[in-house]
Design a binder for these strands. Sequence first.
DNA 1: ATTGGCACTCGGAACGGGTGAGTGCCAGGG
DNA 2: CCCTGGCACTCACCCGTTCCGAGTGCCAAT
Lengths: 340, 340
Amino acid sequence: MVEDRRLAVLRAIVEDYVSTQEPVGSKALVERHRLGVSPATVRNDMAALEDEGFITQPHTSAGRIPTDKGYRLFVDKLSQVKPLTVAERRAITTLLEGAIDLDDVVARSVRLLAQMTRQVAIVQYPTLSRSTVRHIELVALGETRVLLVLILSTGRVEQRVVELPSRLDEETAADIRARVNRAVAGSRLSEASGNLAELAEEFGESSRGMVAVIVAALIEAMSDHRSDERVLVGGTANLARFGDSFEVSIKPMLEALEEHVVLLKLLGEATSPSLVTVRIGHEVPYEELSSTSVVATGYGPGDEALATLGIVGPTRMDYPGTMAAVRAVARYVSKILDEG
Amino acid sequence: MVEDRRLAVLRAIVEDYVSTQEPVGSKALVERHRLGVSPATVRNDMAALEDEGFITQPHTSAGRIPTDKGYRLFVDKLSQVKPLTVAERRAITTLLEGAIDLDDVVARSVRLLAQMTRQVAIVQYPTLSRSTVRHIELVALGETRVLLVLILSTGRVEQRVVELPSRLDEETAADIRARVNRAVAGSRLSEASGNLAELAEEFGESSRGMVAVIVAALIEAMSDHRSDERVLVGGTANLARFGDSFEVSIKPMLEALEEHVVLLKLLGEATSPSLVTVRIGHEVPYEELSSTSVVATGYGPGDEALATLGIVGPTRMDYPGTMAAVRAVARYVSKILDEG
DNA sequence: ATTGGCACTCGGAACGGGTGAGTGCCAGGG
DNA sequence: CCCTGGCACTCACCCGTTCCGAGTGCCAAT
């Protein structure tokens, strides 16, 4: 089939361009791949592919390079996920196995991803919103100061120091602690806020004001999605491999990496760990990053996606390999969260 | 005095080179600075300065640029700390004022430093080793699992989940909690570990094993200086301004920024917030970073330096301005820690 | 000690011809 | 109808050459 060969040519172009970083010509193509036809034929195919917008020439009399559309077709139809090597599998398990707590898992995942893909890795901390309250602790710091510690099912710990309107004695503290925990332990953050709001009413005149302050701080801590927006970035040194002129490629990238909000938007919606999202070039929601691609997926215990992780790199990247790495790490991290 | 003018020439060279990024010649110098002598005289001075190793020419028939030794003399003798502008002062207060907790203070400081100096900023989290234990909390997560929360005077919170050898009921938990806190609250981490070690002995047969596990985890958490080695980096986008060939300048920098251990070594010993340490070019303890300088200082409540903060940038930087910014931020952060 | 003058150096921009990889098109053959 | 070999053409890139000017070092005069 003619059509089939054209796609084979496109695949070959993408593969060669990704590995050599140079426009690929018809002759080099037939040499490196067993296409079974002559360069002239390939040229005709290339002309057709160019008409359809899958490849382009940087300038007349140069080889072809894939367009965003070309890469898109490649990832959608022409590539299959590359299985990981044994060494890679082992790297994942050994590196993630020693994790101490949640933060450590996230930290190790970033390193791992960056190392495997040789790209810039981004891992979002697990969302608070779907997690439940495990325990709330009140610790007196002084006569009128108290430290609130909010422990969530994901293992995340939020803390707030509040200044109280009046003195808090140990008994009252114990009472508040007990009642607050009874009210919210085990419930989701969204429900918990509601339960808490009503709580102040229950208390007697003397301590009502104090409880109100504490409750307000807790609700604030719960609804504060700051930690939803926390991400960890790693492997920035891989930017050095971009090689490109860096005004157009490195600088906007570094700027984006400083802005967590931008990164979260890049990662996009959390999907199931099995579904890897790929955004290519202009599909990325930032003009300045139109020569980069994002490969991301969700992760979380079960198949519930609590957060996203992924990598950012030049459009010219090894998609099958990268997708495999991202998926594998997401799955493994999910498994760890499952157990923890 | 001839000697005086020579130094004035050196100062002028440093200033011009820092602002223009280009080798400065004798003619340009007399035009931009009121030296009161002719280019020829300046040339003689330059020749002398070059003999002494303070300046050098990138190639014959080019202007001069300062050597590391030249910058050294400049910061030691020829510059005075530039006072901050009103806008800068205001920026510091407004930005740092809204901080919620310790982590937030650190995060805001990095941003601030990066923004003020337009360099890459590094802030070390306050050391654990000198802080005292405020409170220890035990939270049951399941029948044989308990979450230990260690709250320190600096506001830092360390957590560990431990698996117990046997079931822990609420009374025993309360007992352990009370005794543990009595044993360590208020003491320094180093002493606290000692106090804890003896504690297990006090308990009866039935709970001794359990206590031992808990105590071991606590001691481990205390002596674990992981958080000593935690640093936050910001303003990496400023690397893009380095403009230089980036194989020699950006890449090693990015690599260093990924390695917290390296960064800590760069920042060096914590000094009093008033003393700003400047390491120039080869004085930096990493070969690959020999074209960068580090400006750092310590910070912490009182004049006790708990940790360090600073910036890294090209040797060709505005030392007076940078030193002023670093010092100001360190002082302000110290003040906040004092109050908190 | 300072200065103007002068010859000299040399990096970098500007120019230009040659080279070759790569293309498009076409006519002939399976 | 599709493939192929052949052919003329294009153009980025390499490389050698030239030219320019900023900047220098040295020297004789003040």
